[in-house]
Simulated assay, not measured.
Amino acid sequence: MATITFDTLKFANTLKEAGVPPAQAEAEATALSDVLEVNLKELVTKDDLRHEVELLRRDMYDMEQRLVIKLGGLMAFSIGIVAALVKLL
């Protein structure tokens, strides 16, 4: 999970310097810190994406193998039908 540091003191001080009352500045800093903490828990990381890509690659490989087997069976069946028709004619 990604770790992002939010400096509430610096944020509150910046608001105070801009003329925001101290109590409001501190409350806004705390509220923003809480929001960021909740939202960052669901943040996807590069490792998460790499893992999902690897799973997709495995699935694609498995599907490719099944498709090759099915197509090979269909070709063998078709050749058998053609051979049978050639014998009959």
Rank of each mutant, 00 (worst) to 15 (best):
L55D: 03
R50K: 11
K41C: 02
E26G: 05
M63P: 00
L43I: 12
R50A: 07
A12K: 02
M60Y: 11
N39P: 00
L43D: 03
V20Y: 08
L32A: 04
V20N: 03
G19E: 01
M75E: 15
A18L: 14
E64T: 04
V44C: 07
R57M: 10
A84I: 07
G19V: 01
L74A: 13
Q65D: 00
L15I: 00
L88S: 15
L49N: 05
K46Y: 06
P21H: 10
L43M: 13
E28K: 03
E26Q: 14
A18R: 12
K70R: 15
G72H: 08
A29L: 09
A27T: 12
G80T: 06
V86H: 11
D59F: 02
L55A: 07
G73Y: 04
D47Q: 10
I81Q: 08
T14F: 13
A29M: 05
L40F: 15
A83R: 14
F77I: 08
F6M: 03
L67E: 08
D7Q: 05
D62G: 08
V82C: 09
T45Y: 10
A84H: 09
L32W: 03
Q24C: 02
R66K: 13
D47P: 01
Q24K: 11
L43N: 05
L32Y: 10
A18F: 12
M75T: 11
V86G: 08
E17V: 07
Q65P: 00
N13F: 00
A25M: 06
R66P: 01
L67F: 11
D59R: 04
L67D: 07
K46R: 06
A83D: 12
E28H: 03
D34G: 09
K46F: 04
A76L: 04
I4T: 11
D59G: 11
L36V: 00
T8V: 10
L43Y: 10
I69R: 15
P21E: 13
L56Q: 09
T3Y: 09
E64D: 06
Y61M: 13
K10D: 06
V68Q: 15
L32G: 01
A27N: 14
R66D: 12
T8M: 07
E54R: 05
R50Y: 03
I81R: 10
D62K: 13
K10L: 12
D47T: 07
I4D: 08
T3L: 12
D48S: 05
G19Y: 03
T45L: 04
N39C: 10
L49K: 09
I79A: 15
E54K: 03
V53A: 14
D47R: 06
E52P: 00
L85D: 06
F11W: 04
M1D: 09
L32T: 09
D48C: 01
P21A: 15
M1T: 08
K46G: 01
R58E: 04
A29V: 05
D7G: 03
A12W: 02
R50E: 06
R50T: 05
E17S: 11
D62Y: 13
D59S: 07
P21G: 11
T3M: 08
A31I: 03
T45E: 12
R50S: 06
N39T: 05
K41L: 13
E64I: 02
L15K: 01
Q24G: 01
R66H: 07
S78L: 02
R58V: 00
G19P: 02
F11Q: 02
K16D: 07
V53Y: 11
V82Y: 11
V44Y: 10
L71Q: 14
T5D: 14
D34Q: 15
E64M: 06
